[in-house]
Design a protein around this nucleic acid. Structure first.
Lengths: 227, 227
DNA sequence: TGCCTGTCGATTGGATCCAATCTAACAATC
DNA sequence: GATTGTTAGATTGGATCCAATCGACAGGCA
């Protein structure tokens, strides 16, 4: 969370096959984590210098981020990191509230004891974690562990993408909801363990609803645009 | 459906702001409609000649299509139109079965009499249409008319994108299901008219289930890879 | 003063150029 | 005859170069 773009570039290492892949992944991480603030114009020349590549891979990466709705392109004015608004957060909640129950429903019959143990461990880790950024990551992994056996790669990838996007609202989520919803996490896990799809989905829906309502209320009291 | 890529390029006209936008939209249309067959390697030089631009806008467009899961990139081997498989079709059905009820639920309270009339007209048009490609387009517009008032732009855009992707399976859908499900369409519309969310969603779920099951059965009898 | 207009620097969109890598054909070896 | 090593051509990934557009600012005009 505290790392700026340059640190993220440093630590990226050579684990990518092409410069475009590398730039895309690093920029996405930087935007999702907040290392690059919403509204920031992304100057191609500047990024090229930071990444030590030419403008071309930067441009290809920005196009991919555009398709993921993380940056906005305006002809001849370039790319800008999309703003965080209440509407966007609600939009994201609505999409996740649609996708995640579907993924969970399809995954539950195929989950193994090992999956449940991993999920359990992740919950324990979340309990002891203080850093918000790391909590977001653990939260994502917990949810994805339960969805991973759905057997439909696109559905899983799409769900993960929108869970990752939620990291952008994490700061506001924590301010509004107060916690990561560990009780609800445990309810979801317990119902999944006994293959009780209906209860698991209900618990998940409750999880989403509480977060979404809390966020709406939080913004209602502020009425301000998000910084 | 019968138009090849070159005709689609001709008829595109100058309604785009940049070459990249133009290439991206035209290529997507060509892939979704089947004008470019699955598995086709997309040679950058060749496309550049067809579109009468350089390779650069082609590459940016291909990157966007990659983010939409319409083409596959392999380093130094280029982009290939992704194959159509039963798994992909099931994946797409599962995603739509998650997103569309959510969109419909949020939209129903805001639908106007005008919306219902438009939807009605579209159904009448579908009844008289013979061309599969055009039927796909009308079907998409019918569904999107009902979802358009959901008030969440991302959810709407994502739903539309996956409805459009379904055009790739249209040929197999028609072979498997036999029709566009007009009875179900009418049930969805009727329930939406009287703001009966539960019934509308149930009718929509039935619509998806029937299609999905029919497609699965269809492929089971063939057991072959999709051409 | 306030508004319009024209110029200039910054920045992007697109074209061209070069280097890295892959494919395929062919030769050499077992 | 099959397999492996080698090499040429095709094709992509990335760098560099040029032209088109935008924004800001200065100056003219009502």
């Amino acid at each position: 969370m505290s790392a700026g773009l340059s640190e993220m570039i440093q630590s990226a290492g050579p684990r990518y096959r092409t410069a475009t892949e590398y730039v895309e992944a690093t920029l996405r991480e930087a935007i999702l984590s907040g290392a690059i603030a919403p509204g920031t114009p992304l100057r191609q020349e500047e990024l090229a210098a930071s990444f030590k590549v030419s403008r071309m891979p930067i441009r290809e990466a920005l196009r991919q981020l555009e398709a993921q709705a993380l940056v906005d392109f305006e002809p001849h004015r370039g790319a800008v990191v999309v703003q965080i608004t209440l509407l966007d957060a609600m939009d994201n909640y609505a999409i996740r509230a649609a996708l995640e129950p579907q993924a969970l429903r399809l995954s539950i019959p195929n989950l193994t004891d090992e999956d449940f143990e991993i999920a359990e461990d992740l919950l324990a880790e979340i309990d002891q974690e203080q850093d918000p950024g790391r909590m977001g990551e653990l939260n994502r992994r917990f949810h994805m562990t339960l969805y991973a056996q759905a057997g439909l790669p696109r559905l899983i990838a799409l769900t993960e993408q929108h869970l990752a996007t939620a990291d952008r609202y994490l700061r506001f989520h924590l301010a509004a909801v107060g916690d990561m919803g560990q009780d609800e996490h445990r309810a979801i896990l317990a119902a999944s363990r006994v293959r009780d799809e209906a209860s698991a989905i209900e618990a998940l829906a409750h999880h989403h609803n509480r977060a979404s309502e809390a966020m709406k209320a939080y913004f209602a009291t502020r009425s301000a645009a998000v910084p």
